[in-house]
Design a protein around this nucleic acid. Structure first.
Lengths: 238, 238
DNA sequence: CGATCGATTGAGGTGTTTCAATTACGGTGG
DNA sequence: CCACCGTAATTGAAACACCTCAATCGATCG
């Protein structure tokens, strides 16, 4: 679908031209839940997490951002951010004023369409994760997350030889998959033991993507074609 | 925000004018996963569920549709439906050709904006459910679902005296909340015992909405103002 | 080189699932 | 109106996946 291939390009091109560069320190808030944001960010280097803190102290991460991702269109539709976003690593990004985007959304039909299409694709992707959180096993959750993240890293041009940097802690993985950090540890150990992946010192290697994918019945179609070249889609399904 | 109040009206007004009425039998497919849809539906009577069937037979429902809901904008952005939708009850709806909407999305800026805003709001709502599926207890899950559904039913004008029709089976609730039907049964029993709700013969009564809401730290803000009048929002939070 | 944070491992507990049996309900035909 | 049927709800008992707590080990960084 050409529409969705255009989406990111149009959006990020717009941001890159119009915006101004910013840097964010590790562990710094990008936005706190309840605050009104004044700018959107196009991430260029580093990772961030969108999360919610519950009253009992538990944290649930609902989204990871990495280079190439736009953070966050949902800020356009509500006065207050519903969830916090924090930098997991040092970040370089391009910031664009919120009102510039708001202005364009509603006057520029092609741009508005891009936003709509992008949001609908994310909705599909999140729906898949609802399914996974709702009824898949610990190993499947972790495997699916690793599959998804690896493909997105690869897409951003930061993977080579089935290897890439992987800045997430086990606690981060746990907070996304709805598991305890301890159980993530045990699950990763199991996956390492059966050669599904190598993960050490923030480096990830996936010796055989298709076996990892089949361990969790991964179908990357939900990431959209822009994130998932057809050639890869086929190998992942076999 | 006025934008979101306009969203549904604009959308459903458009559909109602342009579309043609259809009826769907209980248990009939509205779309099967993998099929290409030719029309969107504005539900007028009855309920539907969007779900995914896993290889091992488990089902996960990622969305319920009820009167007033549009089903489903995500069909616009992919050739094949990613998840199936089935009628939980007999349904009356208005159908509109997919290409009519596709055409308008991308040429009509205001319309495209409505679609974008609606999708972004749904995204927020789903993110909340990811949090709930990821780290809340059985009782909280069920309570949150009941809270959300009741408010939506009320919004559609089908509730009175804290009572409404409630066509979902315990299996339906289980498949959405990621629990077994047996445990939904036990959880409902507990909730009935402590007077959080009454549920019998497909009739739901919530004697005190605010205690039900506080049992799951419910914050209906994620439903959007259109679904959640400020007055109610306050009582639910106290 | 010490201090700190993250990863790892073990032991024990628990919320939820699974399986199986029973009961209640709602619709249908006689 | 009643007898029947299939579906849904309910209950109990046993099993299990995952969690919590706590201690140890390793790695990173000032």
């Amino acid at each position: 679908m050409s529409a969705q291939a255009n989406t990111l390009k149009a959006m990020s091109g717009f941001v890159r031209e119009t915006g101004s560069p910013v840097k964010i320190r590790r562990h710094a808030y990008i936005v706190r839940s309840g605050e009104r944001t004044k700018a959107l960010l196009l991430i260029q280097e580093g990772w961030a997490a969108r999360y919610r803190l519950l009253a009992d102290g538990r944290r649930h991460i609902s989204q990871f951002y990495m280079p190439g991702d736009l953070c966050d269109l949902s800020w356009l539709v509500s006065d207050e951010a519903k969830q916090s976003v924090t930098a997991l690593t040092p970040i370089k990004a391009v910031a664009i004023e919120r009102n510039v985007v708001e202005e364009r959304l509603g006057t520029d039909a092609a741009f508005s369409r891009c936003v709509a299409v992008d949001s609908l694709l994310r909705l599909e992707s999140q729906a898949e994760w609802m399914v996974t959180l709702g009824c898949r096993s610990a190993l499947e959750r972790v495997a699916q997350l690793i599959c998804e993240l690896y493909l997105r890293i690869e897409r951003s041009g930061r993977a080579a030889n089935s290897e890439c940097d992987f800045p997430l802690s086990q606690q981060d993985l746990a907070d996304f998959t709805g598991m305890s950090a301890v159980h993530v540890c045990r699950t990763l150990r199991l996956m390492k033991d059966v050669q599904l992946l190598q993960l050490h010192r923030r480096r990830l290697k996936i010796p055989d993507f298709s076996s990892l994918a089949s361990s969790c019945a991964f179908n990357g179609a939900y990431l959209g074609e822009a994130f998932y070249p057809p050639a890869r889609a086929i190998t992942a399904l076999t």
